[in-house]
Nucleic acid binder design. Structure first.
Lengths: 202, 202
DNA sequence: GTCTATATCGCGATAGAC
DNA sequence: GTCTATCGCGATATAGAC
């Protein structure tokens, strides 16, 4: 289906990787259904027919973008959490890494969030399954922090999860790399807001 | 362009209103570009050609859904805020009303957030202008609460605005009316979280 | 691995009767 | 205000040479 990424040597990017990258860029700007294989091919300096040497169908691009993006976030978040010793620090690592990866892969991430509805039923279910698995990780991390007594327990962990993901994911829609905020600064802001809220300290 | 809504007598819904309602429903599920005039017409018990008695182009549907939705939210939020005497209560009214209207008009609201990119440049600019005007209202309300000393002042009002809107708007994507949470309960949850955060009380 | 040329199809939109 | 019939276009995808 899609090969494991080769170890990151400094090999030149494969045509397939460039294809996925340009497609994600195009999808975020114009939407999956509003993007044409012509334009994507043109971005690579190819004619549209040449794409079909690398993929079977246009939908393959969307499917692999979604799966790749989820896999990358999950992998990097898990790795960051692994190094954190306490439940609160694990959640902190999750928040910072989620924002950092989500904005580094902003095209793919926004495409995942916006265009999942254009996948076939079968593929959409597959992507949702991975998404739910990741969301379960977030929820378990929040739940552990509640059990440790560092997060309030009067809000169900599932609800805290949805609110946290809203806070974090929304940035994929409006964030502009040229703006004043780095992903790191934004992650710090989200963490501050999620934990302590907006009320004035007394 | 689009007539003012007639006063809400108990008149039967006009074909035009049904059309906008069904179109928004279809757009949320399948996306604007993934929805066909055929299917929308079929939902109304019409043939596709009959739609063109009510609109000029398919895009008109998207445009009016977006404008209607923004106008409704702005109108209802302003009305709710008008009755609130303090800056904090004004922000509270904004949050509760935004959530309530956003979920009552969930199809249109999700369409606005997801499918604005499919509008022509000119119309997208018009919708963005109205969106920015509403966002300015949110920001001014937050800023006033900061000046009154009830919200923390170490986070710029623009950043608090983006975080609040992420928290609120995300619900348009996952909220299910059949679920356990009413819009009112969800609004209360968001308010609690936005103000006080998730940290355990000491 | 990329090209030219083409097949095929479904879409939005129109014409004109009723 | 809705219908039947049809147009015309641009999209994905394929065939086969290079």
């Amino acid at each position: 289906m899609h090969a494991l990424p080769e170890a990151d040597h400094d090999e030149p990017e494969s045509t397939r990787q460039r294809l996925l990258r340009e497609a994600a860029h195009e999808f975020r700007r114009k939407g999956y259904a509003g993007s044409t294989t012509r334009e994507i091919a043109a971005k690579l300096g190819l004619k549209k027919a040449s794409l079909y040497h690398h993929i079977d169908k246009k939908e393959d691009l969307l499917y692999e973008i979604c799966l790749d993006c989820l896999a990358t976030i999950q992998r990097e978040v898990e790795r960051a959490m692994y190094a954190a010793p306490t439940p609160l620090e694990r959640l902190h690592a999750l928040v910072l890494t989620h924002v950092q990866v989500g904005l580094r892969e902003q095209d793919g991430f926004a495409t995942l969030l916006l265009d999942i509805r254009y996948l076939s039923d079968e593929r959409r279910a597959k992507v949702m399954q991975r998404h739910d698995a990741y969301q379960a990780l977030v929820r378990a991390t929040i739940s552990a922090a509640q059990s440790a007594g560092v997060l309030r327990q009067d809000i169900a962990p599932g609800n805290l999860t949805l609110m946290l993901l809203g806070l974090l994911n929304w940035s994929a829609f409006w964030y502009q790399p040229a703006g004043p905020l780095t992903p790191e600064a934004l992650g710090a802001l989200f963490w501050q807001q999620f934990l302590n809220g907006a009320v004035a300290p007394m």
